[in-house]
Nucleic acid binder design. Structure first.
Lengths: 326, 326
DNA sequence: CTGAAAGCGCTAACAG
DNA sequence: CTGTTAGCGCTTTCAG
């Protein structure tokens, strides 16, 4: 019985006689034989491993995304190699450990959150099948999967504008240059302009994606006695929670004195009282679309990259509800 | 210039003349040459990839653990291949995709949370370097890293007993068979017994690690008018938050009417008002100890496996503080 | 110090 | 249908 026959039994069972096939299969089972993947990959140039490069993003988002991505990947017979920030080290001086993963992996999913980070071009130039989450540009030679920040932010702002005059509406974001926050800020401003109000400088604030920043912003406004009667759109839920807690500490009630909407629709929104309105991002879909897109790129490189954008949707809860006085 | 020389330049630079070495290095840079990892691994039997198998645990814990593990792994030149539940499929009928990862990986980190899941023996029998988080047994042929549930639960219970009589103390856990919850329940009961009180059946409840279960448990107790004056130790923070919200809904105040301690010290504890006392697990240490242990096992298989147990510590906040009336 | 040659475990092409 | 052979890209003897 030759070694080639064994290989055939394992890969093209039809090319081999029933009798021999069964004999081989039995032997395989008894000896606990398992083909060496390195040898296999050396030949096929495929590892069935997908690399996932994430920024150092907020815990819950990361966990949900990875969970769904892992699920979809294993359905398709792939495994996930993760790293936070692998992509940076690749574009910088390539450390042995840093560039290492690229050669092991059939393709790369990169989540981009900053305008300054290595952009789509750089990723396309890696010359490896790639799918980018969170950033798109028509004509890019990589798959892109985004969520519609503008849509969600528009809905949130319109909702606030229904019960609050434009000059009393505020946007509290993270630093300029963050792709999500910038989009949301823009949609917020556009919605105000559509009502004929040009946003003042102090209506749009830039800080961090943290509880503390939300708290500090709200505290500063209250010190100036300028929060009561306002409607606030926070660029994520952490900021929103900071604002909510600061407001309550000072005796302001939601939605009576302050109306509040967050972004991400994370677990915390329904754990606080009142529950916090937020814009939902379909994270599981985001993850599985990214996996599907990348696998398509890996297995059918001849097809043109697709650019997918997922809808977001405002979930209205008591923190911003009109006529839900305490 | 021969191919062997290039190999030497890249791996044993000292075995080659300065001049040639530099010529090669320049060429490498200019041509963007990168060694094929599959060929390398085929020879060395090493991929510098660590597999991480996680149960489907709560998001935040998972995210923190992975984050710290990734960090430590890359410091040591390894990459992380994650999957939730890969280990089950390996012990069950080995699907092509399921068993696949084992051959690619230099070692495996498995987090165990259930008594019924494939245990330490099964993992040791995989015949691959392994480190287990969350479960230990003296003499096991794998590295184990655990956190001291007993210590933290003891501290929590003692703290509650300082201000509340033993017969008014309650433990609210997840289903029996969960390693963490069972340990914490046991420590709770032992602490009560040490005060001469044998815990009643209704003082220890088993449900799920969810907000809803905490809410339901608290609601049922309040329906029986039996929560006021109680001190509750919840097996995780989600349960604790459910209890906290249910209690507030019915006008009970913490810590005046109910005292509450959770477990995990997650973000939510400091976002709610009052802030929730909780037992802290040192997740980053847990992750890096696991990586270190596994890498030790991979690189020095001759050494005996170590069994590490990390301390936990009670963080007292307003939800349980004695004399912190509302 | 450098080149030639063998071989890691597998699959694919080619004979038989 | 099955065995023989070549070779994937690298490291490592072994000569020179």
């Amino acid at each position: 019985m030759s070694i080639a026959t064994v290989s055939r039994v394992l890969n093209n069972p039809d090319l081999v006689a029933r009798a021999t096939s069964e004999k081989v299969q039995r032997a395989v089972r008894e000896l606990g034989y398992r083909p060496n993947l390195f040898a296999k990959s050396l030949l096929s140039k495929r590892s069935r491993v997908i690399g996932v490069s994430l920024p150092d993003i907020h815990g819950e988002f990361y966990a949900e995304l990875m969970h769904a991505a892992d699920r979809r990947a294993r359905e398709l017979g792939y495994h996930l190699l993760v790293s936070a920030g692998a992509h940076q080290t690749d574009t910088d001086d390539a450390t042995p450990g840093g560039s290492f993963a690229l050669d092991l992996v059939d393709g790369l999913i990169v989540m981009l959150t900053e305008r300054s980070r290595a952009d789509l071009e750089a990723i396309a130039n890696l010359n490896i099948p790639a799918a980018v989450i969170g950033c798109d540009r028509p004509g890019a030679r990589v798959e892109t999967i985004t969520y519609d920040n503008i849509l969600g932010a528009e809905q949130a702002t319109e909702h606030l504008l229904e019960g609050t005059p434009p000059e009393r509406c505020y946007f509290v974001g993270t630093h300029r240059g963050n792709l999500d926050s910038d989009d949301r800020a823009r949609a917020f401003c556009d919605a105000l302009r559509a009502r004929g109000h040009e946003p003042e400088d102090d209506q749009v604030a830039y800080g961090e994606f943290t509880f503390e920043w939300g708290w500090d912003w709200a505290t500063a406004r209250m010190d100036a006695d300028a929060l009561a009667g306002a409607a606030v759109f926070a660029a994520n839920d952490e900021i929103a929670v900071g604002i909510a807690n600061a407001a309550r500490e000072r005796g302001l009630e939601m939605p009576r004195d302050v109306r509040l909407v967050g972004f991400d629709d994370s677990r915390i929104c329904t754990l606080l009282r009142p529950e916090i309105s937020s814009v939902r991002i379909p994270i599981p879909e985001l993850a599985s679309e990214a996996i599907d897109a990348l696998v398509r790129r890996i297995e059918h490189p001849e097809q043109d990259p697709k650019h997918t954008r997922l809808a977001t949707s405002l979930i209205v809860r008591d923190s911003s509800r009109i006529g839900a006085g305490a």
